[in-house]
């Protein structure tokens, strides 16, 4: 099985393996974390959160594809199902977060997180 885990796409007989997808997801996660920590604009932070959620969905799908759940009777297709629910949660989160940001903008005139120190004007 190790050939499939460590496949990097050089052998045309084997698809790209699990580690490649996990590596890409780790890169996306790190970039999202940097955006979350370093951005001052709250929408930039939201962009970082979207990157992190995408990394999580890639991990779900990779483990589903290579973990053999596809052929399992009860757990079949659980990867795309979790992916759909995660995308739905991300949509909810984005809608509520943007509503909060708009409310902040109405009340403070800015969405720079460094300039919003207190809960009242």
């Amino acid at each position: 099985m190790n050939e499939l885990v460590n496949s990097w796409g050089l052998n045309p007989a084997i698809p790209v393996g699990l580690n490649a997808y996990l590596l890409v997801a780790a890169i996306l996660f790190v970039l999202g974390l940097i955006a979350c920590m370093a951005r001052r604009n709250a929408i930039g932070i939201l962009i970082g959160v979207e990157l992190i959620i995408n990394a999580a969905i890639i991990n779900f799908m990779a483990f589903w594809r290579f973990g053999g759940s596809q052929t399992d009777g009860s757990g079949a297709l659980v990867g795309p199902l979790f992916g759909v629910f995660l995308i739905l949660l991300a949509a909810c989160e984005a809608a509520v977060a943007l509503a909060i940001l708009l409310s902040l903008y109405f009340n403070f005139g800015t969405i720079e997180v460094d300039s919003i120190h207190q809960m009242e004007r």
């Binding site: 790209v16 997808y21 890409v24 929408i43 939201l46 962009i47 979207e50 995408n54 969905i57 890639i58 799908m61 990779a62 589903w64 594809r65 596809q70 990867g79 795309p80 992916g83 759909v84 995308i87 739905l88 991300a90 949509a91 984005a94 809608a95 943007l98 940001l101 708009l102």
Partner: peptide, 30 residues
């Protein structure tokens, strides 16, 4: 990636909801 991993359904869902919905929402916010 989702298409490569074998779920065309999730790939289309990603395009429709993420690109068509969440990203447009983000642009509105910006």
């Amino acid at each position: 990636y989702f298409a490569l991993l074998g779920s065309s359904f999730l790939a289309i869902t990603q395009v429709v909801i993420y690109v068509g919905g969440i990203l447009v929402l983000l642009m509105f916010g910006v």
